[in-house]
Every structure is written in structure tokens, then in C-alpha cells.
């Protein structure tokens, strides 16, 4: 308990400072992208997130590339759906093998929360580009509505996005419009489903139940240091 409060205190203390370079970059991006930019977040001294509209996804990449963000780091997707199988790791017993009504209700009732820079839909694509001369980096996100998982491809902007988009396509089922070779990268050609989605069960974990948290007993000599010797 005391640890958690300590963490919270440092949290508040550090957020005060203002990151001028990133704020300047953000304002430049805001003027460039105009309506395309939906939301943004600056963590001072650390990172910049922007959330763009889906239709502005390619434009945003183009704009960033013109702003010397020539280095393509990665592109992937996030599924914000809370795991329908319950929070396995937090439970002492596996909920799916010994289902109780409470647990199921809890899992379904759990609201979907999105992370930094917000979000309204279950799926988001996100990517990161760097400007290696100044060391700046931007993480972009874009919402994709559930019924229309289409977004433009970044290949004309960053050719390196090719394989990343193929991976995101097979793992999340997101269609990258204009991708020249939308084949599976890792998975077999006839694989069914999209493994990285939260509702795709990790079968091995279903078959062999998680034994709960292993390290729950206090270890000797840790909390009671006096008795150790």
C-alpha cells in the first residue's frame, strides 16, 4: 500500500513541467493537419502522441515525412476490447474453467477504456516515426470503426510499412486499402481468424489452466530481514 502512494506522489510531482519543443511540434502538426488531428497528448520530456482521423492517416504520414520524420519505426494495431475471458492474471483460479456468474458479468460489464490520446472505437492503428537528426518522435493513432476496418496504406510514404501492414492485417483483420500484396506474413495462408484480437482465445491457456499467481507467499528474508541471519 505504501508503495502505491509513493508512486502516485512522484506522478504528480513530475507532470508539472512543460515541454516546449514538443508543444511547438504539436502546434505545427495541428496547423498542417487541421481537422485531421483529433486529439493529442504530450508527456513532457518524453513523447508525443497524436490521434488523427482515419481519412487523414495517409496525409498525416505524408506531412510527417515532409517534416523530416524520415525514419519509420513501426506500425501496428491495438484492440481495446477488454478480454472477454476475464482478467486471467489477476485471478487466483482460472475463470473460464470454473466459470461463476459473477465473473462473466464482471467481464462483460467492464467498460472499454482507451489509452493515451484517447479513442472512440475498439480498433486503432498506431505507428511511430522518428526524426533522427533532432531525436524527435511521434506516435500516431487512428480510430477504426468496427464495421469498416479500412485504412489507407502507408507504403507510398514509408515503403517499410509493407510488412508491418501485412502483419497488422493478419493479426487484427484490418484492411489496408491499396496494399499491393495483402497476403499473410506469418500465418498460414488458410488460417482462420485474427490471433491478436482480444476475443481470439489463446488456446494453450484455455487447455492448461493458469495456476494463478505463483509468487504469493512471502519469501524468507525479504519482509522480515532481521530473522534471516
Amino acid at each position: 500500500m505504501s508503495d502505491e502512494t509513493a508512486v502516485a506522489e512522484t506522478d504528480e510531482a513530475e507532470i508539472v513541467e512543460v515541454d516546449e519543443a514538443r508543444e511547438a511540434l504539436l502546434s505545427e502538426l495541428t496547423s498542417e493537419l487541421a481537422d485531421g488531428l483529433v486529439e493529442s497528448h504530450v508527456r513532457a520530456g518524453d513523447d508525443l502522441w497524436i490521434r488523427v482521423h482515419r481519412d487523414a492517416w495517409v496525409d498525416a504520414g505524408m506531412t510527417l515525412k515532409q517534416m523530416d520524420f524520415g525514419y519509420f519505426s513501426f506500425l501496428s494495431a491495438i484492440d481495446w476490447l477488454p478480454s472477454p475471458f476475464g482478467r486471467d492474471m489477476n485471478s487466483q483460479v482460472d475463470l473460464t474453467l470454473t466459470p461463476s456468474e459473477d465473473a462473466d458479468d464482471e467481464a462483460e460489464a467492464e467498460p472499454m477504456e482507451t489509452g493515451v490520446a484517447g479513442g472512440e472505437t475498439r480498433f486503432q492503428v498506431f505507428a511511430r516515426v522518428n526524426d533522427i537528426t533532432t531525436g524527435r518522435a511521434v506516435t500516431l493513432k487512428a480510430d477504426l470503426p468496427d464495421d469498416d476496418l479500412n485504412v489507407g496504406t502507408w507504403i507510398p510514404v514509408y515503403p517499410g510499412a509493407n510488412w508491418h501492414e501485412r502483419e497488422a492485417r493478419e493479426m487484427y483483420g484490418i484492411n489496408f486499402v491499396g496494399h499491393p500484396n495483402p497476403r499473410n506474413l506469418y500465418l498460414p495462408g488458410d488460417f482462420q481468424g485474427h490471433p491478436m484480437r482480444k476475443d481470439y482465445a489463446l488456446l494453450s491457456r484455455r487447455i492448461k489452466p493458469w495456476p494463478g499467481i505463483v509468487d504469493v507467499e512471502p519469501m524468507p528474508g525479504d519482509d522480515d530481514e532481521g530473522d534471516d541471519s
Binding site: 513501426f74 482478467r87 477504456e113 489509452g115 511511430r128
Partner: peptide, 18 residues
């Protein structure tokens, strides 16, 4: 790089391994 998304649990919500 690792892009780690946490929801305050024991386990990460999403880990993107770059």
C-alpha cells in the same frame, strides 16, 4: 523497442515488440 500498454493489471494489456 517495446510499446507497452498497461491497464493497471499484473499483466500488460498490449506489448508491441519493434
Amino acid at each position: 523497442g517495446y510499446y507497452v500498454i498497461s491497464k493497471g493489471d499484473l499483466n500488460p494489456f498490449r506489448v508491441k515488440i519493434r
